[in-house]
Design a protein around this nucleic acid. Structure first.
Length: 535
RNA sequence: GCGGGUGUAGCUCAACGGUAGAGCAGUAGCCUUCCAAGCUACCUACGAGGGUUCGACUCCCUUCACCCGCUCCA
């Protein structure tokens, strides 16, 4: 399947529209249309139902170390700015970049290594985008090349001591870029802040600056104590939240995959430190199965454990659930969900202040006066276990899923083409969305075979009986084959048709979207018949 | 943000410095007894803003969006 076909179908049938399309669109933002809003609601509801509503707090599900409780939360998008300073987003989401006019490459400003060198009365800063010894070696090579010297003439280079980074140099006119041959090809550094800023209250100054959340997780951490104090929950338990997050991505791309406004479905699961590894494995496998059960069953879905050097600064174990989206190169996968073992990093950060790694542990980051760089709340977020009479800071397992990415993956997987004979027996191409019935926007369509003989009246009664129970659609226009095909394209799993036999014995046909098979049921039983097949 | 490409109807594609056309889709009606049938009629477009010109969809500039590559990606 080519991605353009799916994008065209999504627009044609009302799954997804570009945001503000009549004004030319806005990069990185998307709107869900009449069918899309139902699909996405179904994704959210399947997640919330499976993770929270239907969870039995008293029994351990298969693979879980012990019984655990699940509850929910719905936090504000805008939170106290200190939340983002302590979480690390304020510093880490703020990057400086320089571009090279010669190589057309972009570099992190603080990651360009370089060294001053002088030759023939010309002093330049030669750089490399490598790090450590690789950088030193490359800088030496590049300096020789820049001054057009042979290796044996390297004594003519007068090096100043120490490799440093470009951000310590300040200006770029005497800098040789990492992939450039000439001088001064780098632009001035430009700031990229991945957090959207806004101002709270009528006065716009530094003190009123706030941020749209770049993830929903922090709202859960800062409410950890509130939930504990208001619910009598005991560790282990999880708090779920679904909500919008915002990241001012440099390059939104690939349909809705990387959007600037997106919806997350996150669980923060709090457990005893000594059992956190077992819980991490449980959630990794449990979340993977969720996608499989909703239809991402093939080779395009995979579970991938991160390499140790790939882990985030807080994490001691992360696995991605990934899907081979059609817009990616063959063999490449895009992240649907990350399941991370976050240790006690988050709760400690909001107690003590922003943490940085110190050996195997973390310590509060300090400023030049030795005080915390960003002060925490000072509130005690530890947990007292009545049974063991121990106090500890719970460890956190975080399964963090993208609702829009999941919806997109389900659409990609559902897109199918086959050939079915038309009324003359000639094979015709058919496009259909093989969505899991739980995800399908419309569960059933009701048709009179023809628009006469009292069939529309019976069909309308059936429609009226279905509609209060699940999304249904009525259509009496044109040939029935065309009506079937339209529903196939919308992913409707079942079509109910009133025909002449209905007039005689009160039965109707039910047609299956994937197999095209039909069977008869009494017309009063078709709501229950369909309900039973919705899963 | 850089380089390359593309913007005409809901979709796929034409044409032309001087009245924008087709197929499919859609709507209405007729017909139709199970898989995009037929007939009739109808609806709908030059991404946006400037400039050149008597006249611009066409030429030029700017901008926006999409695609590919780079870059980035908790």
């Amino acid at each position: 399947m080519r991605m353009e076909q799916l994008v065209a179908l999504c627009k044609r049938r009302g799954f997804l529209f570009q945001s503000s399309e009549i004004y030319g669109g806005l990069n990185g933002f998307w709107d869900y249309g009449p069918l899309g809003v139902e699909l996405k609601r179904n994704v959210r509801e399947a997640w919330w139902h499976n993770m929270v509503t239907a969870h039995n707090d008293l029994a351990a599900p298969a693979g879980a170390p012990e019984p655990y409780a699940m509850t929910g939360l719905d936090c504000a998008v805008i939170m106290h700015p200190q939340v983002w300073k302590c979480s690390g987003h304020y510093d880490l989401f703020l990057d400086y970049f320089v571009d090279c006019r010669e190589s057309n490459r972009r570099y992190r400003y603080d990651q360009i290594a370089g060294r001053w060198v002088e030759c023939d009365a010309q002093r330049v800063f030669v750089t490399s985008y490598q790090s450590g010894d690789d950088a030193a070696a490359e800088i030496e090579q590049k300096a020789l090349k820049f001054f057009k010297l042979r290796a044996k003439d390297k004594d003519r280079l007068r090096w100043e001591p120490g490799v440093t980074t470009l951000d310590k140099v300040g200006e770029t006119s005497r800098v040789v870029g990492p992939d450039a041959k000439s001088l001064g090809t780098l632009t001035a550094p430009r700031e990229f802040n991945l957090m959207f800023e806004t101002y709270t209250g009528a006065v716009r100054d530094e003190s009123s600056k706030t941020f749209l959340r770049p993830e929903t997780a922090q709202g859960i951490f800062v409410n950890f104590k509130n939930v504990l104090d208001s619910t009598r929950l005991k560790v282990p338990f999880g708090i779920a939240q679904i909500g919008k997050s915002f990241r001012n991505e440099i390059t939104p791309r690939n349909f809705t995959f990387r959007s600037r406004e997106f919806e997350q479905m996150e669980i923060e699961f709090f457990c005893r430190p000594d059992s956190s590894a077992a819980w991490y494995r449980y959630w990794r496998d449990r979340r993977f199965r969720w996608y499989v059960e909703l239809g991402l069953a093939g080779e395009r879905l995979r579970l991938r454990d991160h390499d140790p050097d790939e882990l985030s600064h807080y994490s001691c174990g992360t696995a991605d659930i990934e899907y081979a989206f059609p817009f990616l190169a063959p063999g490449e996968f895009g992240e649907l969900e990350g399941v991370a073992h976050r240790g006690d990093f988050d709760l400690r950060s909001h107690m003590e202040g922003k943490l940085v790694r110190a050996g195997d542990d973390f310590a509060v980051e300090t400023d030049e006066h030795g005080r915390p760089r960003y002060r925490g709340s000072g509130k005690d977020l530890s947990y007292y276990d009545d049974e063991t009479q121990q106090r500890f800071i719970p460890h956190v397992i975080e399964p963090s899923a993208g609702a829009d990415r999941a919806a997109l993956a389900f659409l990609c997987e559902a897109y199918n083409e086959d050939e079915q004979p038309d009324e003359k027996g000639v094979a015709q191409k058919r496009v259909f969305l093989k969505l899991h019935p739980r995800l399908a926007p419309i569960k059933a369509a009701v048709f009179p075979l023809v628009k006469k003989d009292g069939m529309p009246e019976i069909a309308k009664d059936i429609y009226a009986a279905l509609k209060p129970r699940f999304p249904a659609f009525y259509d009496e226009k044109g040939a029935v084959g065309r009506r079937y095909r339209r529903q196939d394209e919308a992913g409707t799993p079942f079509c109910v048709t009133v025909d002449s036999q209905t007039l005689a014995d009160g039965t109707v046909t039910i047609r299956d979207r994937d197999t095209l098979q039909q069977w008869r049921v009494p017309k009063d039983a078709c709501a229950e018949e369909i309900r039973a097949r919705l899963g």
